[in-house]
Design a protein around this nucleic acid. Sequence first.
DNA 1: ATTTTATATCGTCTCATGGCGATATGTATA
DNA 2: TATACATATCGCCATGAGACGATATAAAAT
Lengths: 123, 123
Amino acid sequence: MYIYKWFVSSLDTMRRSATNWRVKILAALSDPIRLEIIEFLGGEERCVCEIVPAFGRAQSTISKHLSILNEAGILERRIDGKRTLYRVKNPRLFDLLRVVDSLALEEISELKKAESILMDCVK
Amino acid sequence: MYIYKWFVSSLDTMRRSATNWRVKILAALSDPIRLEIIEFLGGEERCVCEIVPAFGRAQSTISKHLSILNEAGILERRIDGKRTLYRVKNPRLFDLLRVVDSLALEEISELKKAESILMDCVK
DNA sequence: ATTTTATATCGTCTCATGGCGATATGTATA
DNA sequence: TATACATATCGCCATGAGACGATATAAAAT
């Protein structure tokens, strides 16, 4: 039953093109809580019981975010007894986030420059 | 009027944290059409009148996608006469997409492997 | 000055997503 | 076996995003 479900869903996923996978990964990353979960994990493996209290959200909410990251192949899930542990699957992800950061910082500094020019005009 | 509007909106944007900028950039990228627009542009500068017919969507739809990419700081807009030209602002973006690709390809090959194992079991 | 062309914006519809409490599932403990 | 614990899933609501036709704006051509 479980295996069947997984098999069907993975076959379904196979049918998606590489572009759709890219979208899936990027969509999984485009949420503030999910980005913070990734930062919270860093290189460590942590159980849900550690992650949930670190964010002021319902357990079901965090669980769903973790599932989204897991299904996008960003996190890896490991079950140990009654606990579930997550970790960032591929450290390349941090390279990706660093590039995003550099783009974001550039954008912010550009806006700051524009703002100060406008401020001078107003004076 | 226009400058005022832009000023207010940029101040508003300034208030967003770096994390929100990251989310904005990633959200702008997490759409198949927008990714294809970026690929279509490549390193070139193209006008909307070239982009619209390349996708089977309404002009208003493409225009909105271009605005989203522009507001996220991914594309740059230049007006020339009655035409509007767009280009990818920062070539680093392509580095980012290449990293996403490598993550996606890894995921796909992992699924293919799992699929073939399951197929063998079924035989 | 009117019309045509190029693009952005608006209003509306529908569908997807995030949030939460409640419930299900599965493991450990008493 | 009953109970507590850890986590995932379900059902619902509210909000947001994408699609599109219609309209607005603004430059170019007539």
